[in-house]
Design a binder for these strands. Sequence first.
RNA 1: CGGGGCGUAGCGCAGUCUGGUAGCGCAUCUGGUUUGGGACCAGAGGGUCGCAAGUUCGAAUCUUGCCGCCCCGACCA
Length: 445
Amino acid sequence: MKLSKYLLPVLKETPSEAEIISHTLMLRSGMISQSSSGIYSWLPIGLRVLKKIENIVRDEQNNAGVNEILMPTIQPADIWNESGRYEDYGKEMLRINDRHDRQMLYGPTNEEQVTDIFRRSIKSYKELPQLLYHIQWKFRDELRPRFGVMRGREFLMKDAYSFDIDEMKSEDSYNRFFICYLKTFARMGLKAIPMAADTGPIGGDLSHEFVILSKTGESDIYFDQRILQEDESINEIDYEGDLKKPVEKFKSYYSVSDDKYNESEFNKNVDKQNQMQSRGIEVGHIFSFGTKYSTSMKANVLDFDGKEKSVYMGSYGIGISRLVGAIIETSHDEKGIIWPDVVAPFLFGIINLSPKDEIVSSNAEKIYNYISDKYETIYDDKKDNAGVKFSRMDLIGIPHQIIIGNKSKSDNEIEYKNRRTGNSEFINIDKIDEFIKRFPSYSAI
RNA sequence: CGGGGCGUAGCGCAGUCUGGUAGCGCAUCUGGUUUGGGACCAGAGGGUCGCAAGUUCGAAUCUUGCCGCCCCGACCA
């Protein structure tokens, strides 16, 4: 992609409304544009990151054997009346009347909708379990939206739902998602810690939040640091194998957020040298809520004995748009964002320092064509000053940068700069083929 | 929802107290000089001062109402 043909409205100054670093950087790097409080447009570079994250989440759901569906954003009030939540949900739910004055709502979540789908189509225990997910925009009319996309009113979520014949089978599904979540966050380069959580207004008793460690997170968390080492072996866990054992292993470590924290319990459960305190951002939540919705909404199947039974359900969310902000919170410096390779809007950025020099430009163009053939690449062909180009490329966080200028012409070399380390090295133009082989291709996603 | 703050050019702000018809920096456009870390010179364009009503000869400025946005708290992916 040539920058001269791309919408990238970077800001030099910090917009006055931004409070935390990820919000500031998303606005400054031209990723998002605020539409109204807690509601944002995603501009080209921001959308690319959002899609990267979405696709990793999707891929990991698919790997775990979950089937993708897509439910609507607008739902009828009827099914919410069935579950009783139309009254319970309160002002966070955006209520709408259609032209026939029928009560509708913009979905804050989808338990009712998915339960309705399930009960229309599944009638026998033989068809269980059913594992379904969708990735959709939701709306919760928060009292106070803040922190940009970290706590917007409109947000993109992956929601999954499980349907099982009994509590034991339901726990198998729960464990499947538990592992799936650890794999998903690890793949994005995040340290995610599962924490026992309250089930909240939705009810139930089996619930974990997944929190990523970040100095600027919203809540204080206390945990056994050995859980971090456990995280490193997560890729080896096979869904076909026993999932209960690794999940129990994770659950055995102490990890709680400040509202559940108790000092004496912490001391009792964790040796002093393993005690850790950090700030964290909640990016995922899984919980099992039994027959809460299946009973009220009559989502029944026939069991092997011919009797009708309410199915056991669970629900599993990942805040995809929130993850964009969360990753920035964990990965930035004073110059701007530092994207992990797997979610970067472009893996490579090429800076042409002398766009008016024909020889330099034709070299840069060749290198751009060569690299962009294999990797997503943004090519800064604009006629700005060198400093502007360097700082812009750093601000938007492109992990691998190629710098081409007059020096390249005289020395037949290009400079490669790593955004994260800041280290540079010079590569002979004739050996670019060898250089490029160092980088794995992420085009598979 | 309780408390606080802000709304003036695309962005960041001054001017409001003490009323006299709007300014600075950055950005943008033109010409020129620059070109390895947010350049320089010269010129130009861009604002019914959030909206409405009121007071006044005259309102960005005073009064009232409304709208929007932000921050702290309670709540949440």
